[in-house]
Design a protein around this nucleic acid. Structure first.
Lengths: 141, 141
DNA sequence: TTAATACCCTACTAGTTTGGTAGGATATTA
DNA sequence: TAATATCCTACCAAACTAGTAGGGTATTAA
């Protein structure tokens, strides 16, 4: 399951996609409209900025906005930032790989099954983008 | 990611598949061979028994064994028992469904993406069975 | 029938993660 | 220089994870 934090992140991103190319959006605006605790959302957006998904402006007229065109950011990238590994086992993870303690990967049935799940999952998450999250999914600038 | 507990469960089940049709296997045997904390393993096996995956015999000559033919138990079933939901969001889960608080499922891009992931994942996990976990995967009684 | 065996069950605990909150520092704009 | 709004560090309570403890109960065999 995705954490609460990750779900907040996607709700916020959806809002920002809807406001794409309309200038910076206030954290407080997102928090209110999407019913997300303000200070918690601050942390999340900052993390997404540091990871290169979002950018921001300070001072009056400031706020957060999506850095590149929404079609450039995959859902997979966001999940990794705010939720961690996508794979079900460390030994099949591409970005968070860790060797199994007591299993020989070359001859492990579970490894094979979970690698298949990873492939199937990534095949979707790497190709879906923020654009796919928008409310009006046909009309995006 | 699967919890440590779930990974222990699969390790134990793999061992039991290898010993299928050879009579009950001692918890202590599994614990030692698979390097799993004994008392923790006790809890896990008991849970798998209550869920109908395993059966057991008490007293001398007792132990745990797989209840039906390994090909009858899906990997998905085991995951649900020892690890919980397979879906990434409550609102797309078949066995652990829960409505979203602030999203209209009919018009939610994230919902659609995660439903696709669920389908792709289940397509694998429901069709792979304990038999696929065995060490010698060609020769099973 | 009794001793040994081995699972069954409830309860507890330390450590980590999750889901936040608090309060001020810093940068930008007007 | 005052107002605005993000940035940053630190903290906290609750929930979850990963076990441990200790005895109860059923079965078997001598």
């Amino acid at each position: 399951m995705l954490s609460n934090k990750a779900q907040y992140a996607f709700r916020a991103l959806t809002y920002l996609v809807d406001k794409y190319n309309q200038g910076p959006v206030l954290i407080s605006d997102i928090a209110e409209k999407k019913k997300i605790p303000l200070k918690f959302l601050e942390n999340i957006l900052l993390e997404l900025k540091k990871a290169g998904i979002l950018d921001s402006k300070k001072g009056k007229g400031g706020g957060y906005y999506i850095r590149e065109h929404p079609s450039k950011t995959s859902v997979a990238a966001v999940v990794r930032i705010v939720n961690g590994p996508i794979s079900l086992l460390p030994c099949v993870s591409l970005y968070f790989y860790k060797r199994c303690d007591n299993c020989d990967e070359g001859n492990c049935g579970l490894h094979d099954v979970m690698a298949s799940v990873r492939d199937a999952t990534l095949n979707i998450l790497e190709h879906r983008t923020l654009e796919d999250l928008a409310s009006g999914r046909e009309t995006l600038g």
